[in-house]
Amino acid sequence: MSLSPRLHQIAHHITPGASVLDVGCSDGLLLDYLRREKQVDGRGIELDAERVARAVARGLSVVQGNADHDLAAFPDASVDFAILSETLQAMQRPDEVLAHLLRIGRRAIVAFPNFGHWRVRANILFGGRMPVTKGLPQSWYETENIHLCTIDDFRALAASRGYRIIAQRHLWGANPQSAWPNLLADHALFVLSN
């Protein structure tokens, strides 16, 4: 089974044999890949019962839970990498979840859609409407994405909390986007440490 370019980019930053907590792990596709290809000791947490059931049926250690409430039980510095993929913007308190990631993991890997992308800006600027794009396909009233941010917003949050940015990768579709990422990249990945 092949990974999407986004998940592949996350996997790229995981060192073989590492321990991993994937927060919002869906049906465990990434954890399954990391277990097979990188001999990772993986755990996951996922809100949706059916996805959890599919992940556990794959033999993964995944618990049904809510990242906003259930990360507190995880011990300090208990994994090498805490991953938050496509989930940050759906959190009640993204800042607190981020703090938990960096408490539980020695490093945090956070991937999210960039709300500063020009298509999003154009939607609001010219259309006067909340954007509906390929990366953000739902209307404002039904989306789970309640805390969308731009790449610059995220950098500012990391700076204000004193987190170190170890690496950052920006994508436009499946391709790297290094110039003017806050405008031209529709997706971002950050590797953070305390």
Partner: peptide, 21 residues
Amino acid sequence: SRRIVQALVAAGRHVSFVELS
């Protein structure tokens, strides 16, 4: 069950948990 899961997580155990309908 959640209480058990939280204890297992806190103890660093590998745990799978799901509430089925």
